[in-house]
Design a protein around this nucleic acid. Structure first.
Lengths: 234, 234
DNA sequence: CCTTATGATGACCACCTGGTCATTTTATTG
DNA sequence: CAATAAAATGACCAGGTGGTCATCATAAGG
């Protein structure tokens, strides 16, 4: 997926402001409608250029989409690299919170990129969806796992923790957090949808705390609860 | 959404085997292609009936979809009711495991239903998606929350646990588990995709255990770790 | 200034979509 | 059996799609 070029020289030679305008409109269309319902006619209508030009630039709708996707992946990678470097040496749960916060920042800056990702997630019939997903899902494998393993050796996480399971688990929670932030009705009434900075920050802390400590009462394994008489509050 | 009828008497009067065949093909088409790409032409082709008949039965593509969706929601509700009743009185984490296991069973029995749900999840432009999602997302609100609250009063969960947060959290993990089971590349290398009963059962236990105990070492709150010298193994 | 190469254009193509409806077939009733 | 009601049919419609390409405009080079 890396080496392939989805763009023709005719497009490359274009003045960069025109290139940006074209990509901007295309990203907007794809993020709003998803791949299938996105319309080239509508794009060229908004751009005020001829339909043929788009095909001269990209060859096909698919190539246009892939070019944008590649661009998006590059942005994500850069963002992740930034957080990883910027949180080096910190406590694991701090790093986690920073990663989640960075996800929110990313979505705030590039709202339409995440939409494009979500819209293709479950369209299996999608051409090359497997490749695209593999590329994007490096998150949990390339990003989270090393951090987890470091934290285990640093004694911040249980010694017997299964890194793969932990990566899956965190990926689930973090991804859903982002989904809840930018898609309605995914927040189980937590009020995450398009929430402002303050709320997000609090909820991130709450979530991370839950990841840290789990849900069970402090003392009791599976069996009967011995915490009945513990009536301390606050 | 409950009272509305998406089906015309002409369809109701049909012999039930024909009705089932039609719904079966329609469910298949929708689950494979999603709403937009699903083709009425293809359905009637496979069914060997006239296109007009479908519109005589349902009036529109949307109605056909809604009828199926309603059917699906009923199935889910029934399944949930079953687990809830069948796990009454059990320990919270047992109930959790049973719920997740029931989700897997459900997907095994009705693989295409879950696909239909996934395919509409992030298509915001979808007509009435809000209503459909509200109906389906009752899971975390109507199903999980009462169970959580019971468990808090029973002393199985932290006293200071925020039920809304817990519901969100569990919904995230459980839903992702199901997604990983039936969609490729969502399992972060855990091997959940179309895994067999044995693997699933183990992984459910692992996940629930992680929900129970969290990830941190047993003793240390945020600050420095005091577990460095604890070199017990296994 | 003319020639040649390159880019922009939009009419046009085949194809497919959801939906309609006059017509025919089948079932019901007197 | 005839008359009527109900259901099945598929040709047909308008509208949209991604994609093509002959034609025209512009730029480059001699």
């Amino acid at each position: 997926m890396e080496k392939t070029v989805y763009v023709r020289p005719t497009f490359t030679k274009l003045p960069s402001d025109k290139k940006e305008r074209i990509l901007d409109v295309a990203i907007d269309e794809f993020s709003r409608c998803g791949y299938d319902k996105a319309s080239i006619n509508r794009m060229v209508g908004r751009l005020g250029i001829a339909k043929g030009s788009i095909f001269q630039y990209f060859g096909s709708k698919k190539n246009l989409y892939f070019h944008i996707f590649e661009h998006a992946v590059a942005l994500v990678k850069r963002s992740l690299k930034g957080v990883k470097a910027g949180s080096e040496g910190e406590d694991f749960f701090i790093r986690l919170a920073m990663s989640l916060q960075a996800g929110i920042y990313f979505i705030r800056r590039y709202p339409r990129i995440y939409q494009i990702y979500l819209k293709m997630l479950f369209q299996e019939d999608f051409p090359f969806r497997a490749d695209l997903l593999k590329t994007i899902r490096l998150f949990s494998i390339d990003y989270l796992r090393p951090i987890i393993e470091e934290a285990v050796t640093a004694g911040q996480l249980r010694e017997d923790l299964d890194p793969e399971l932990a990566a899956f688990f965190l990926d689930a929670v973090l991804d859903r957090f982002l989904q809840a932030y930018c898609v309605a009705y995914m927040d189980s009434g937590l009020g995450l949808y398009q929430a402002d900075e303050k709320v997000i920050e609090e909820r991130i802390q709450d979530c991370i705390e839950m990841v840290r400590l789990g849900m069970a009462t402090g003392d009791s394994p599976p069996g009967e609860s011995a915490a009945k008489s513990m009536e301390h509050r606050a």
